[in-house]
Amino acid sequence: MNIFRLAGDMTHLLSIIVLLLKIYATKSCSGISLKTQELYALVFLARYLDLFTDFISVYNTIMKVVFIASSLAIVWCMRLHPLVKRSYDKELDTFRHYFLIGGTFVLALVLNEKFTLQEILWAFSIYLEAVAILPQLVLLQRSGNVDNLTGQYVFFLGAYRAFYILNWIYRYLTEPRFTRWIACVSGIVQTGIYADFFYYYFISWKNNSKLKLPA
């Protein structure tokens, strides 16, 4: 464990806390894409299959449980909670995310570390996470004004993988046989997808203005 990875995990956790806070405090999920939340739940379920078979550390196990539980809780909340589900922007959240699932699964069948179920699902979760934010970014562009908590949620979600890239550079330099091409390339693509969001987020922060993504 290095400081970059810890910072990345904490930032990721923070993004989930901000999202839970937004939904709980405002009893509304307006501006949040249910499709992105479903993709994230799928990412965690596909990636943490080894939750019960491989014990890595208490920290690792606890974080996996927290990520799986929180992502499922958010999907449940947006689908079934009587008050919250009414504020879901169903007509704006129209990204065809099934193509993302199909495309990344096919890619995982072709590009993986080992042609075993666990490795294929692990690679699938890595590729899917890279594109999971797309429905959310499309929704933000369509919904025009972005409320602060939603903007912070997306910002922290993008920032966490940037910390992971520093972690991979650090591990590459300090560990002899460290190579994680799948995670690294996918992580760079993932962070790149946030680039324009980061740009507009920075502009809105600098001008102290409302965050607006161009349609």
Binding site: R5, D54, N60
Partner: peptide, 10 residues
């Protein structure tokens, strides 16, 4: 034997 801690990251 110690399984290769391959996916030791979240």
């Amino acid at each position: 034997f110690q399984k290769v801690l391959y996916h030791d990251e979240l």
